[in-house]
Design a protein around this nucleic acid. Structure first.
Lengths: 184, 184
DNA sequence: TCGCACATGTAACGTGTTACATGATTCA
DNA sequence: TGAATCATGTAACACGTTACATGTGCGA
């Protein structure tokens, strides 16, 4: 065994199927119209990913012929799929994740509700907040270490990143507070 | 002809070579230690990309045997490479770019200095600022359209995105102001 | 002598992109 | 009749990831 970990797209699909069993076409619409991750809604990505999930036993597909249109294939997570998904949600994350894969962490957060454990979400956000604070210092160091004559454009680009991470940090701290207040 | 457009990694390499002709190993170090894009420093990405640039005539490589270590291959942009790079910097961008490829735009901004035209950078930021404002409204609409019973986690995840884009918008507007003041 | 920094590369693999194919139903 | 929407899929392709290969010089 020791199967390879699912890709982010596969986790995103698994998450959507947790909320509501649905077809590939349905999730394509979701990807096309909402800001979830930034996953492509291209059929060449979605359908093969659903196939992989199915052949790994993480979802089960059933043909729904009840409609008069072309039959839909509706997928739902299996018990194993649910277990794998929960483990992904609860996995530790590293400083590198904050620096390079912030979006992945937001994807996990978006689906954190399936754990049905606000304390877990609060802890997640707490770690995120402190790691983000740390990374901001890192970025500010990089800005300081730019040589004197560095033109303004790279400074601006880095500055944009810093401002965005600062906003994320404020948001994370505030969210922890919010969850602590109405969660206890 | 009608060559395929370079990848972002290739543009990033081209940009670094504009600042200073250097070897693959040199750029790997840069990628490994700075926040430039989030490009990987893996040799399996860098060396083939440099090869592609070379075979498309965008950079030229010269063996530098002056050191006693294993000889380095130092790359520099060609005339054609410089032209292609400038065109990339000046290309229009779409709302989709702001929504899904903000990082790419920051990469372009970081290298905008090679245009040596502060007015161009200011215009770039102006468009970026207004498009970002627009996208924020989009995201806030999505948040409002969440059904009543939506759990808090997806709201938080979307909220994080909104806060980050708001920070980016403030930064962009402020940068325009800064460039207008000391640029005229 | 062991390992690390320098320096460049290759091979297998998996995944996403793009473009195409198919076919039914609904509406103008 | 033709176009749009529903719905699923495949094939070619290119790129990045991971892991491996190779070889020198230097410091412990």
């Amino acid at each position: 065994m020791a199967r390879k970990a699912p890709t982010n797209l596969e986790y995103a699909l698994l998450g959507l199927l947790h909320a509501q069993p649905q077809s590939g076409y349905d999730v394509r619409k979701t990807f096309a119209t909402t800001a979830i991750g930034n996953y492509s809604s291209s059929p060449g990505a979605i359908y093969p990913a659903l196939r992989r999930l199915e052949s790994n036993g993480l979802v089960t597909g059933k043909i729904d012929s009840s409609t008069e249109l072309r039959p839909r294939k509706v997928f739902a997570p299996s018990r194993k799929g649910r277990a794998v998904f929960r483990q992904w949600l609860q996995a530790d994350f590293t400083p590198e994740d904050v620096a390079k894969k912030f979006d992945d962490l937001m994807l996990r957060l978006a689906f954190h509700g399936v754990l049905d454990d606000l304390a877990a979400t609060r802890d997640f956000l707490r770690v995120l907040a402190t790691e983000t604070d740390r990374y901001i210092e890192d970025l500010e160091d990089q800005l300081r270490q730019f040589p004197e004559q560095t033109p303004i454009q790279p400074r601006l680009a880095l500055g944009s990143g810093i401002e965005q991470y600062k906003a994320a940090a404020r948001w994370a701290h505030q969210s922890v507070k919010k969850l602590t207040e109405d969660g206890s």
